[in-house]
Structures are given as structure tokens and as C-alpha cells.
Lab assay of single mutants.
Amino acid sequence: SDYEVNVNGIHHRFHNISEELIKFIEEALRRGEDLREIIKKVRELLG
């Protein structure tokens, strides 16, 4: 049904976003950045 496609589409989009965010955060932590600064950047990215 349309509803299922829609829900799956939304889930898929969020899954991709969270994968990208996790990579972004892991790389920043590897560079020794402060978690609070990383979260601030993530918030800015998400608008």
C-alpha cells in the first residue's frame, strides 16, 4: 500500500542519515574533537 511505501521510505531516509551521522561523529572523535563540539556541529548541519 501507499502507506507502507511511505513509512519504508521515511525509515530508509533516516537510516541513511544516521549512518552518515555515525561516520561523521566517529571521524571527529578520532581527530580528538570534544563530543559537545561535535554535537553542536551536528545540530547546525541538521538546521
Rank of each mutant, 00 (worst) to 15 (best):
S1L: 15
S1G: 08
S1N: 09
D2M: 04
D2I: 06
D2A: 04
D2G: 04
D2W: 08
Y3H: 03
Y3D: 00
Y3M: 03
Y3G: 00
E4Y: 03
E4C: 06
E4V: 08
E4H: 07
E4L: 05
V5K: 01
V5T: 02
V5Y: 02
V5A: 03
V5R: 01
N6C: 04
V7I: 09
V7S: 06
N8I: 02
N8V: 01
G9A: 01
G9M: 02
G9Y: 00
G9C: 02
G9D: 05
H11S: 13
H11G: 03
H11M: 13
H11D: 05
H12G: 03
H12F: 09
R13H: 15
R13Y: 14
R13G: 09
R13I: 15
R13K: 15
R13V: 15
R13F: 15
R13A: 15
F14L: 01
H15K: 14
H15Q: 13
H15P: 11
N16I: 02
N16M: 08
N16S: 06
I17M: 07
I17V: 14
I17N: 00
I17T: 03
I17P: 03
S18W: 02
S18Q: 05
S18M: 03
E19T: 09
E19W: 15
E19Q: 13
E20T: 11
E20K: 08
E20D: 13
E20F: 14
E20Y: 14
E20N: 09
E20G: 09
L21Q: 09
L21M: 12
I22D: 00
I22Y: 05
I22W: 09
I22T: 03
K23L: 11
K23Y: 13
K23C: 03
K23M: 11
K23H: 12
K23T: 07
F24L: 08
F24N: 05
I25Q: 00
I25L: 04
I25W: 01
I25V: 07
I25K: 00
E26V: 14
E26N: 12
E26K: 14
E26A: 12
E26Y: 10
E27H: 14
E27L: 15
A28F: 14
A28Q: 15
A28C: 05
A28R: 11
L29V: 11
L29H: 03
R30P: 02
R30C: 04
R30A: 06
R30Q: 09
R31Y: 08
R31K: 10
R31E: 06
R31W: 07
R31M: 08
R31C: 03
G32Q: 11
G32D: 10
E33A: 10
E33F: 15
E33T: 12
D34C: 06
D34F: 12
D34W: 13
D34K: 07
D34T: 10
L35V: 14
L35P: 09
L35M: 07
R36H: 09
R36L: 09
E37V: 13
E37H: 13
E37I: 13
I38N: 00
I38V: 12
I38H: 02
I38P: 01
I39T: 04
I39F: 09
I39Y: 06
I39V: 11
I39Q: 04
I39W: 05
K40A: 13
K40P: 05
K40E: 12
K40V: 13
K40T: 13
K41L: 13
K41Y: 15
K41C: 04
K41P: 00
K41N: 10
K41S: 11
K41V: 10
V42I: 07
V42M: 06
V42Y: 05
V42F: 06
R43L: 10
R43G: 12
R43S: 10
R43V: 08
R43N: 11
E44N: 09
E44F: 15
L45R: 07
L45D: 05
L45A: 10
L45W: 11
L45N: 07
L46S: 12
L46T: 14
L46M: 14
G47M: 14
G47N: 09
G47L: 15
G47P: 10
G47D: 10
